[in-house]
Write a protein that binds this DNA or RNA. Structure first.
Lengths: 120, 120
DNA sequence: TTGTTTTTACGAAAAACTTCGTAGTTATTT
DNA sequence: AAATAACTACGAAGTTTTTCGTAAAAACAA
């Protein structure tokens, strides 16, 4: 279960908005970048074959649903990324992420809370 | 400046050990996985062309050096990754990373320190 | 009912990435 | 000196990922 970048784009749309047709997903993606309808269609068909999406074919325009959980998927990707980009050092990654991506005070507080839990 | 996974493998060797020949890098990689000498050679030649590595050709066996900084490169990769996998939410990534990759108490303390600095 | 739009399925080209074989050259060993 | 080993350069094949065009079927509009 290692979705490619394009597959992730689509998963994000479905995770955020729930089940959708190819048309809906394509319209959504189209807001951010140039992408042909059949390109989106093909991706979603492939993702269906791979088991990344399920689909309801009762209507002529099929409705697709994410078949993989967002948190789990992100965790898998993160594991791989920590390995390839940070040689397994998660704490280095965390510090880089904290250092250069501004988080809101709320988020920082939440992270601190988690940190407390881990430390105790 | 977007090294591929294979290129990253090589950069990690050079970052960790300093300048090296193809033979040295290949021996290093060979410890972890099956990889032909000319495969490593080709990668390093391509990376040289791309400007990822510099090389000293005075000796017959060329010595290659990483031409890109480790922290900068990781930051770039991280930015891209936060975008594609976490839709820009660095704090979600940080929490997932903290949650599932055990960090040592020392590392957690270091992270807390950084957090303090960011919060003040 | 005839033409237009919408949608799926299929195939395949294009691009990016990985991997290695071969040829030629230079060094080393016997 | 001849054989062997080490290296570079080059080309190309194999994979994976991205992107569409076209055809056929179904729905809709005139």
């Amino acid at each position: 279960m290692k979705p490619t970048d394009s597959e992730l784009e689509i998963l994000h749309v479905l995770w955020a908005n729930g089940p959708a047709t190819v048309r809906q997903v394509n319209d959504n993606l189209g807001q951010f970048r140039e992408i042909g309808y059949t390109t989106t269609l093909k991706f979603m068909q492939l993702m269906h074959e791979k088991g990344l999406l399920t689909r309801d074919e009762t209507a002529r325009s099929h409705t697709y649903t994410a078949a993989v959980n967002q948190a789990d998927t992100q965790q898998t990707l993160l594991d791989r990324f920590v390995e390839t980009a940070f040689k397994g050092s998660a704490s280095t990654l965390v510090m880089q992420a904290l250092g250069n991506h501004k988080a809101t005070p709320d988020e920082l507080a939440e992270i601190r809370e988690l940190l407390d839990k881990l430390t105790k």
